[in-house]
Design a protein around this nucleic acid. Sequence first.
DNA 1: GATGCACCCTGTAGCCACTACAGGGTCAAG
DNA 2: CTTGACCCTGTAGTGGCTACAGGGTGCATC
Lengths: 142, 142
Amino acid sequence: MSGKIPSSDHTIGPHTIGALGKLTGVNVETIRYYERIGLLAGAARSSGNYRIYDDRHVKRLTFIRKARDLGFPLEAVRRMLALSDQPDRPCAEVDDLVVEQMGEVERKIADLTRLRDELARLAHQCRGGLVSDCRIIEALSP
Amino acid sequence: MSGKIPSSDHTIGPHTIGALGKLTGVNVETIRYYERIGLLAGAARSSGNYRIYDDRHVKRLTFIRKARDLGFPLEAVRRMLALSDQPDRPCAEVDDLVVEQMGEVERKIADLTRLRDELARLAHQCRGGLVSDCRIIEALSP
DNA sequence: GATGCACCCTGTAGCCACTACAGGGTCAAG
DNA sequence: CTTGACCCTGTAGTGGCTACAGGGTGCATC
């Protein structure tokens, strides 16, 4: 059976999943995963059962990718997408998500900074010796 | 069938898994998980098939917990445990692990700091407005 | 000795956010 | 007409646990 297949490579018009992936910088497997969990709407299909994405998909996925790059968990991304579809709602709800995420990130930074200091204290404590005299092992041993 | 069961609550002598967990601050499920993946040696069993841990287990698990608290992945913990059993090997191998882990942590801190700065720039950009005018949504939209 | 309760056992499934196959089908070019 | 790049579905794996389900054990209390 013959059928039209979308030619891709352009920034506009229909795209195969691979073209969408390249356009947005998202792995093909990840795109399918997003569809499976209902984050990205399913695409139309070609006669050969290929997914055919349009520009709304490109926009949507770009949004998701940027939000993920900022460290938002998928649930937050989902909420932001929902909000972006409701232009009449207060913007503060979006802001809350950003502030929450910033808090998370700051907590992680604080934790990791403590860790790094601990590790720095441990490092290079036993240059050239044997494990039997290793201060690091000692520090970990009860 | 009767049988001796270890009474616990002391810091020395045999322990049930629950007592070991309390002693070391490690979740009971996690202890069983460590046994399953071969990180913590299996314990003797009581007549009622309860695990009976001795002081070597306590030491071992404390070591693991401290290393985990420092963010070492389980594979690194495994290598450190192996090294701690070979006192004649050079301590530098342990040091390498610490330095590597410190590098990881510093990379994460750098990444998160960049993230935090991005988020800080986004936060509070659209106080009181509607989603339709939200700069955050705008920033994420292509 | 029956009952209750805290603890223990095994085995399996779930979490997050992907990633990596296996085993096939489809498309365009040479 | 074959090659090779791409696509499809479905399932299993990653790390490091955590959370059951469905049972058994140990001990105190009535």
